[in-house]
Amino acid sequence: MQFDSFADFIDMGGYAFYVWLSYGVTFGCLATLITLSIRQKRKVLIEIAKKITREQRLKETRGTNRESKT
């Protein structure tokens, strides 16, 4: 352990702002990227599912139209 106390660790030998800015932005950016990437999968699947229901509805209405003509 290089630091005597927790306050010492936070202070980073007087460079606290630069060190914690770097680490903060890095892990903040990475966390955002990871969350967005994981969520994207569900979004894509829901979109495909919506398309499927739309197609089915279209097929059904087409079927009834044909029946009414005959």
């Binding site: 990871i34 990437s37 994981i38 994207q40 999968k41 569900r42 894509v44 699947l45 829901i46 979109e47 495909i48 599912a49 919506k50 398309k51 499927i52």
Partner: peptide, 26 residues
């Protein structure tokens, strides 16, 4: 890998195996 899997799903929306996954997710 996470993004690649999503990209595969998005580009293969017409395939039966993706459609199965999509209806299960919905």
């Amino acid at each position: 890998l996470v993004r690649y899997r999503t990209e595969i799903l998005a580009r293969n929306g017409m395939r039966p195996w993706v459609r199965e996954l999509a209806t299960a997710e919905e």
